[in-house]
Design a protein around this nucleic acid. Structure first.
Lengths: 342, 342
DNA sequence: TTGAAAGCGCTACCAT
DNA sequence: ATGGTAGCGCTTTCAA
């Protein structure tokens, strides 16, 4: 048995002292090496040993300790104004924030523009959050989850179209949206169904499962219907191009990804004299106000985000009682709303 | 007094030790009092003295030190996914974030839902940011600015329709938007001009100056035109109600606050058989995609946000060289885009 | 009822 | 080239 006091294996967060001990150097040296301090000369062999020790332990520096020592931060605060008339997404986060504040948490929205998944996880870990709610758009890897939990996060929750292994998941089941849209179109007697695939890169994690759900709904219907993916950029030229080729595509209905793409496409189709819904039915998703303002009124898949309250309570529960098996909850209820466009 | 809220070299950020010294007690007592620790009994007179000392010094606890000592945080991290197809506002902030990260700053979007202006400023100050960029929606008061600078913020910058005394300001001149809209309508020969006033509370800081700009443009035109404010909520019922009273209002043009309100109102007017633009001209603001998708195509005031790059550089400059006179920069360039609706 | 002091993790100064 | 160590601001235990 080692004579050194044993660290409770999983529970304690490694510090620079741990790295120093493992590398057989002082904490000062660790600091010099890891910060690439150039005013001090450290032998290459020591550098390597320190870096390896840090990597072995999964060491992540503690931002609070660092800035306490430094006497200042490099933090630029961007207070987020509550958005009264925001998108459903924004309203959800604003509500979550309020609920968590009520439970005495400090809510920080941390930007990670231009960072890769694991870089981002590391940057988050430096802040030592007690909980992380990661939206899609940043794909949290199992490795990233490890970094976060090892740095003290009690609850790591992914929030997006698909769950991630090893984290709790709030799933917004995008497949169901595609499924709802297609079942609605099938019920209207349509059989050759186009599905818009937005070409904006950030939307892929949503677009792919919506298409998959559409395909599955067709297969399960045994109707002999078929699905045709339709790439579309969010600009008029792309929409006009698609509309110009419309009759050649031979589709009698289209699920346009969401309401805004639907509006764009519908206008282009109308300009190309494609009758809606006679010739082609159109359905969007999101059930925004604009559905009711367009003519014909736009059918849509209403997606109801559960209120944030249960999520706030779930976070609180996981923080107080961490370590259970990953939970998975569905957060999205989808239902088609038929209007004049289908 | 209303000069620069400077941070002279000798005056540093007050700590609990300073409070203790001023109150003539120990740091422990300060901690007990300010945290309302109930396990320890402190005389009422001491409590009062401590609180007064804290208030006198403008003491704000240091969140990093607190969580370092506690060994854990109550921080819930809400990583903000980059929004590729977001609103101009969001894209601006995302760009700012990337630019600042490149300058090696840590960008944190801090929510303050349900907090008053000075409460919020205090909460921000606890994080000891080196710079704060405060959007409208949270009205930063001179007092709040003082709290922030005294806690070490080198650059406090307001970002919104109006500058705030004592802080640097990036002004998004909302009056100019109203002015542009009205001058455009006047040039189209309209003389009785309605101006939509959204009833959503968060929009007041924008709505009021847009109206003011509209009024001023009319006055300066010496055209004998008049302006009529038109309250409107963002729902169909409110729009239908307004449209139903339309002919009694005697307006021949309307500046509809922004494109989305314009879309809502235009639909209601069309449903009420008000001819656009023959009977009433409509202009929005924002020049969103939907302007080109509506029929008639919606005229709009294009508002060009300067890119975030200069702001990031300004922040960096102020951090490195703080204490100058408040700067003021205009961030918005507005120009009317005439389409079929006017 | 209050105070003295330890120590959270880190970096920078001053020794070797 | 590397180590010892002080101290950032705070809370909390123990002692007075």
């Amino acid at each position: 048995m080692s004579q050194l006091p044993e660290q409770p294996a999983g529970t304690s967060v490694p510090t620079s002292a741990d790295v120093a001990r493992l590398a057989g150097v002082s904490r000062a040296t660790v600091s010099y090496v890891l910060n690439n301090n150039t005013t001090v000369r450290i032998s290459e062999s020591t550098r390597v040993r320190v870096r390896e020790a840090a990597a072995d332990l999964g060491y992540v520096p503690h931002a609070a300790a660092r800035s306490l020592r430094a006497g200042h931060t490099r933090m630029v605060l961007l207070p987020a104004a509550p958005t009264p008339a925001g998108r459903p997404h924004e309203r959800f986060f604003t509500g979550l924030e309020a609920d968590l504040r009520r439970l005495d948490y400090t809510v920080v929205r941390y930007g990670s523009v231009g960072l890769g998944a694991d870089e981002a996880a590391r940057a988050w870990a430096e802040l030592r959050p007690v909980a992380v709610v990661s939206p899609s758009g940043i794909t949290l890897t199992p490795k990233g989850i490890g970094v976060l939990t090892r740095s003290g996060a009690k609850a790591v929750i992914t929030l997006g179209p698909q769950p991630v292994d090893g984290a709790h998941a709030l799933v917004m089941d995008q497949e169901e949206i595609g499924g709802c849209a297609v079942r609605h179109l099938l019920s209207r007697g349509r059989r050759r169904i186009g599905v818009v695939i937005p070409q904006e890169p950030g939307l892929a994690p949503y677009a792919a499962p919506r298409l998959a759900g559409a395909v599955r709904a067709v297969e399960e219907s045994s109707s002999g219907a078929r699905v045709q993916p339709l790439p579309l950029r969010f600009d008029e030229a792309s929409a006009q191009d698609l509309a110009g080729r419309w009759r050649g595509l031979g589709v009698d209905a289209v699920f346009a990804y969401d309401d805004e793409y639907a509006m764009l496409l519908m206008r282009a189709l109308q300009d190309a004299r494609v009758a809606i819904p006679a010739e082609t039915a159109v359905i969007g998703a999101g059930d925004l106000m604009l559905c009711r303002l367009l003519r014909p009124r736009l059918s849509s898949v209403r997606t109801e985000l559960a209120t944030a309250q249960p999520l706030a309570e779930m976070i609180d529960r996981l923080v107080q009682n961490p370590g259970g098996a990953p939970e998975r909850h569905d957060l999205l209820r989808a239902a088609a709303v038929g209007r004049e466009s289908t």
